[in-house]
Design a protein around this nucleic acid. Structure first.
Length: 1191
RNA sequence: GCCCGGGUGGUGAAAUGGUAUACACGAGGGACUUAAAAUCCCUUGGUCCGCAAGGGCCGUGCGGGUUCAAGUCCCGCCCCGGGCACCA
């Protein structure tokens, strides 16, 4: 009987499903094994042959473990929240839930066809409310936790509050990793804590929560209308779509992953992950050891710096809480659309121009004032014409403001427009006349007024008072410091700038903040900077050190300031060289005229206590001295930043937070899941708010009577009545990585309604034993995954703090694109759109005869593929003129065979319009106008050329060039597994994907090679048949047959352990070839071999198993053991080498000793002949391996 | 620049310091067949000598080294892929 893959695979797919063959129970006496694949985002393009590679490998392991007596959890699901479905929704209006549903169904169909042993009853989808209820729940746990640095773990926020209530916060608890409580509010006693308003208390707590709201610098992507996490940005553009990204400061939900930096680093040591994976994580975390050093400030040259007695945080609560949020929307709006006069004045008084900070459109009580200095309690109003009509109202307003202690000064529109500078001076004068009502006006670092609940997290906020604090990894080079450099965003820049330097500094700061990340990166080689005019004191020498501003210093790392050691740091050296600053040698033997000496094994040559010490010894010594002087201390810095958690998008988990008086409060657990509301459009609102702001009644009304009642059916909807006590809900949603940060736990107990997973299930399944997925998740998913796991561990919710013991990254299967070339200046995307007339450089075609001919365009040709530039460079000998500027056009690879395009197939498959009408030029320089098919097809092609006559010559085939690159729909190089399965069967596909090469390696897909594995399966099948008749004999196997079997079992068993599947498949082929040659049809050989093959090719194995007379599934069969006794050789054929070069083979009994072999070899006449009578210098015999004779 | 991988036939690739190129594709030749498909068999790293049987030399990116023996270990380069990157 012929091997009929279709019949067999269809049958067993159905059979497995009806029998529930792959259903997994939680409670068994068997040992567990957890094999997990990174779940896919179900994209509209479906699977290509690259996707299943890892799934096949993990499926083999899962099946192998099952045969080996383990209870194996091998689930699959969908990471179903994400941008593409939302983008599609924006374009078409189709709800992302529908798109996701359709795509997932298609994925399921494709996955099923490949024969995976997934237990689909455990499927999870991150966009399913039953699932994201628990994502939200975990968010609430994070919100309600803080990181205790002493216990080095997360604890409930309630414990922190209790601590504040009993002992306050005197600084020792304040070692939080982002935002420094000392800076924000200073130490407070228990009594003070109790006196704080709720708002202040909540603000303080934001500094500690693991999920927190703050004003933060974010990666804002205008094209996507959302913020992105650091790992979602590559080279200054968004990883998805490649849109530009800018730095922007805005209120933002973040995850305090930095609290876990050290543990994320330490945890790597015990994991069985590849070194490159671990290194990528280590790089990302970026720990560096060094010191923080404080350079004292000489008295401030600017009126901006004042004394800093403790702040009264309540001072900032200037708005009437009841209507704050409503007013804030207006205030924001007004800030965005200022009047001309307001704008003009703002230019004059913004920043530190008046010597203190002015806020605009700030809310005081029930009013939005134009400008205000809070410390001086001075309101500045600019009256437009409209004010004339409402003087009465203004009077009342002024009255009320005066009651609150504010002075109001008014200017007329005209005054400002006419002479803004004068108005500014009058404001400065008025300010100087006012006493300082609050000494500290900075509780947040933004330049706009906003919610008082925005703890600052800006550069430099950790700087000590009256000092510039820097971080350095080389405190040993302190004596080489010749200047300090501040990032342009550093908060002290304004204060330190002297009047003489002000214009220059402000221009510089403005210019560098306006530059996008991308521009900055592009101009990395440019040295720019400006002197502030101020000096700081060197902690050791007491010398004055000039303070500069330079954008080579990053605001976000360390303190946003560096001590520049041009003798020891190349960047500082370049800066010094450029601005003519002194360069002092810090190390012996340095040639500082040419470059800085960055050697870490050098000896310090600076005069003083470090002289003569090696770098390694000088570093601790310098730190010691700094500590003595209280001018610094040892410090560890991490590159890792807190992760932006809010997304201004629709298709994500709603963040379960509501706002009362602008304070974020967690929704009670009983309100979960907070279901995504319906919206009319999936776009931001006209005022720029996220799509959820479009939802009707997106508010929450607490129901005190039912606060503790269990969730009843129908509840938990986000749509709530808009009654008076309704509070607005958070409108940003969670990022894509939220749902994928804990999904492995849900598979353990996917239908649990009362908990994310039962403790029993978690205790049984524990960690992932084998995690399979792409290496591109090294710094994103895998870091967050580990972070959440550690957090859940800290809070006692799970008994382990790493999710995956072993991680294997499958390589990428690349596509082979078929490429043709179009003219310079055109891209494949605009190719179809450019009218020919507009392409001035496309008009002339140069033929290989060297003639130039003008193309006729009486018939308005619109498109072309090969134009003058390409053709011009073609000569008969040149390789088609590759080097010229060109634009690549990719043809659907399924229409290309051996590089030759089959146009009939192309016409049938590819509807791109440029194929129907255009101008085409071949490799040989022959051009043609008309439909692509007319051109390419020999049968009715070239004859149809009209216009000036051209000689036809050379190849008539339309040749393409192959190029190996990422397999993707947009490159037209996708190979669909469905087509392969249709033709060859799923088992062949599985075997072939494994046979391609080592799992972790990237390799191009080449469908040709599949014949080999297809042939193998037919050979294997035929071992069970003689002609058309099933023929399996019960005869006892011979020694040779046993040897083939056991060698195969040994190799395959060992190779699965090593994840070396390509060599396993090769071994199966060897076995089939040898048994075929032996005409072996014996059950004792074929049955164990079938079990061994089952993980790789489950359908055919199951079929043969049933043909062998078994009624239960082969998945229940015990893995066959190999026995060494069948592999023992009685005769070993020794390779005999002379001076390491093999020259002959000699057979000896395997049990012969070293000496016996040596004697026998030397006695051999052929050997004697080679020795030519001379005695060998040395004879090395490695029993059962080799003999080497040294002459 | 720093940190990880990797470089072996025409191609995908094998090889605990021990016969380099297993297995497969492709190519060439042959058998079966009216023919085709399918199947099976042989050859297939380069080069030189030989009518042939057979034999010599060279070969795992380049140059050194360790060793009886190196694709494998060590040192120094070159190239390719990936990660990080004015991170102080």
């Amino acid at each position: 009987m012929a091997y009929d893959h279709k019949r067999i695979e269809d049958f067993w797919r159905k059979e497995w499903r009806t029998r529930g063959t792959y259903h997994v129970e939680n409670d068994t006496a068997k040992p567990k094994y957890y094999v997990l694949d990174m779940f896919p985002y179900p994209s509209g393009a479906g699977l290509h042959v690259g996707h299943p590679l890892g799934y096949i490998a993990s499926d083999i392991v899962a099946r192998f473990k099952r045969h080996s007596g383990f209870n194996v959890l091998h689930p699959m699901g969908y990471d179903s929240f994400g941008l593409p479905a939302e983008q599609y929704a924006i374009q078409t209006g189709q709800h992302p839930a529908k798109t996701t549903e359709d795509n997932a169904a298609r994925y399921r169909e494709q996955l099923d066809r490949i024969g995976f042993s997934f237990d689909w009853s455990r499927e999870v989808r991150t966009s399913n409310p039953d699932y994201y209820k628990w994502t939200q729940w975990i968010f609430l746990q994070l919100f309600n936790s803080w990181y205790d640095p002493k216990a080095d773990k997360a604890r409930p926020i309630a414990e922190l509050i209790a601590r504040f209530e009993s002992t306050g916060c005197q600084g020792q608890d304040a070692e939080v990793l982002t935002g420094d409580i000392e800076e924000a509010i200073g130490p407070f006693t228990a009594a003070e804590w109790k006196n704080f308003s709720e708002r202040t208390q909540q603000m303080v707590l934001q500094y500690f929560r693991l999920a927190y709201l703050s004003d933060a610098w974010v990666n804002w992507c205008p094209a996507l209308g959302t913020v992105l996490a650091n790992d979602e940005v590559k080279d200054g553009v968004s990883e998805r779509g490649g849109h530009p990204v800018e730095r922007k400061r805005m209120p933002q939900w973040s995850m305090r992953i930095t609290a876990y930096a050290q543990r994320l680093l330490d945890g790597l040591d015990d994991l069985d992950w590849t070194t490159s994976m671990k290194e990528a994580q280590r790089n990302w975390i970026g720990r560096s050891e060094g010191a923080s050093v404080r350079f004292g400030l000489t008295p401030s040259p600017s009126p901006g710096e004042r004394g800093t007695p403790p702040a009264d945080p309540r001072f900032r609560e200037t708005a009437d809480p009841a209507i704050w949020s409503k007013l804030d929307v207006h205030a924001k709006d007004m800030r965005k659309n200022p009047t001309e006069a307001e704008d003009k004045l703002w230019e004059q008084i913004r920043g530190n121009a008046t010597g203190g900070r002015i806020r605009r459109q700030h809310i005081i009580d029930r009013f939005i004032v134009d400008f205000v200095s809070l410390p001086k309690q001075l309101v500045i109003e600019v009256d437009g014409d409209i004010h004339d009509l409402q003087q009465e109202a203004d009077a009342a307003r002024t009255e009320r403001l005066k009651e609150l202690g504010f002075e109001v000064i008014r200017f007329r529109n005209g005054e400002v427009l006419h002479n803004a500078a004068e108005v500014r001076d009058r404001i400065i004068q008025a300010l100087n006349e006012r006493p300082n009502f609050a000494q500290r006006d900075e509780l947040e670092g933004g330049t706009e007024a906003h919610s008082p609940l925005s703890p600052g997290e800006g550069p430099g906020e950790r700087s000590g008072e009256g000092a510039i604090e820097v971080f350095t990894t080389r405190p040993d080079t302190l004596f080489g410091v010749t200047f300090l450099t501040l990032a342009p965003e550093h908060e002290l820049v304004q204060a330190l700038t002297t009047d003489a330097q002000r214009t220059e500094v402000e221009a510089y700061v403005k210019a560098s903040t306006n530059r996008s990340e991308r521009e900055r990166q592009a101009e990395v080689d440019k040295v720019t900077g400006v002197f502030t005019g101020s000096y700081a004191k060197h902690p050791f020498t007491g010398k004055d050190i000039p303070v500069w501003v330079g954008d080579y210093v990053l605001a976000g790392y360390g303190t946003g300031a560096v001590m520049a050691v041009p003798g020891g740091d190349q960047r500082d050296w370049r800066f010094a060289k450029h601005f003519g600053l002194p360069i002092i040698a810090v190390t012996e033997g340095a040639d500082i005229g040419k470059s800085a000496d960055e050697r870490k094994d050098a000896v310090i040559c600076s005069e003083g206590f470090l002289k003569g010490l090696k770098v390694a010894d000088a570093i601790p010594r310098a730190i010691q001295e700094l500590e003595k002087l209280n001018a610094g201390e040892g410090r560890i810095n991490y590159r890792l930043r807190d992760a932006a958690f809010g997304r201004q998008r629709y298709w994500g988990e709603p963040i379960p937070i509501y706002y009362k008086d602008d304070i974020p409060y967690p929704l009670p657990e009983s309100e979960l899941p907070l279901v995504l509301p319906e919206v009319d459009k999936f776009l931001p609102t006209e005022t720029g708010e996220p799509p959820l702001a479009r939802a009707k009644n997106w508010t929450y009304t607490p129901k005190p009577d039912r606060a503790h009642a269990p969730l009843s059916p129908g509840e938990g909807t986000g749509v709530r009545s808009g009654d008076a006590g309704a509070y607005p809900l958070e409108t940003t949603t969670m990022p894509g990585w939220a749902g994928s940060s804990w999904y492995f736990l849900r598979y353990m107990d996917p239908h649990n309604e009362g908990r994310f997973a039962s403790p029993e299930a978690i205790n049984y399944w524990q960690q992932i034993d084998l995690y399979m997925g792409g290496s591109e998740h090294a710094t994103g998913h895998l870091l967050y995954f580990r972070f959440w796991t550690k957090f859940l561990f800290d809070r006692g919710l799970i008994p382990f703090d790493e999710p995956a013991k072993k991680l294997v990254n499958q390589g990428m299967i690349q596509g082979v694109s078929a490429i043709g070339f179009a003219s310079k200046g055109m891209t494949s995307s605009n190719l179809g759109a450019v009218p020919f007339e507009d392409q001035s450089d496309g008009r002339i075609i140069h033929t290989i005869d060297g003639e130039k001919r003008e193309l006729p365009f009486s018939e308005k040709p619109t498109r072309y593929f090969f134009s003058s530039d390409v053709v011009e460079s073609i000569s008969p000998d040149s390789n088609f003129g590759y080097e010229s500027d060109r634009t690549e056009v990719r043809f659907d690879v399924s229409c290309v065979h051996d590089g030759v395009l089959n146009f009939d197939q192309l016409m049938a498959r590819d509807s791109r319009s440029e194929f129907t009408d255009g101008i085409y030029v071949t490799w040989d320089g022959i051009w043609h106008k008309g439909g692509f098919h007319e051109f390419v097809n020999e049968d009715h092609g070239f004859d149809k050329v009209d216009g000036p006559e051209f000689t036809l010559r050379g190849k008539k085939d339309f040749l393409t060039q192959p190029e190996v690159e990422k397999m993707s729909k947009s490159k037209f190089n996708v190979v669909n597994p469905d087509d392969i399965i249709e033709h060859y069967g799923a088992d062949t596909l599985r075997l072939y994907e494994m046979f391609l090469g080592p799992l972790e390696q990237s390799k191009p897909w080449d469908t040709h090679g599949i014949e080999g594995t297809s042939r193998f399966l037919r050979k294997f099948w035929n071992l069970f048949f003689e002609g058309d008749i099933l023929s399996v004999s019960e005869e006892a196997p011979t020694e040779v047959e046993q040897k083939v079997l056991h060698a195969t079992l040994k190799k395959v068993t060992e190779d699965i352990g090593k994840m070396s599947f390509n060599t396993s498949v090769a071994q199966f082929m060897i076995a089939a070839n040898e048994l075929g040659a032996l005409k072996c049809h014996k059950r004792d050989i074929l049955e164990p071999l079938t079990i061994a093959l089952a993980p790789f090719a489950p359908h055919i194995a199951e079929e043969l198993w049933s043909l062998l007379g078994h009624s239960d599934s082969i998945t229940t069969a015990k893995w066959p053991q190999w026995h060494a006794r069948f592999l023992e050789e009685s005769i070993f054929s020794y390779p005999i080498s002379f001076n390491g070069k093999t020259r002959m083979q000699l057979e000896f009994p395997a049990e012969l000793s070293k000496e016996e072999v040596e004697a026998a070899v030397l006695a051999n006449p052929e050997v004697q002949q080679r020795l030519e009578g001379k005695a060998p210098k040395k004879v090395i015999v490695v029993p059962k391996r080799i003999v080497n004779i040294v002459l």
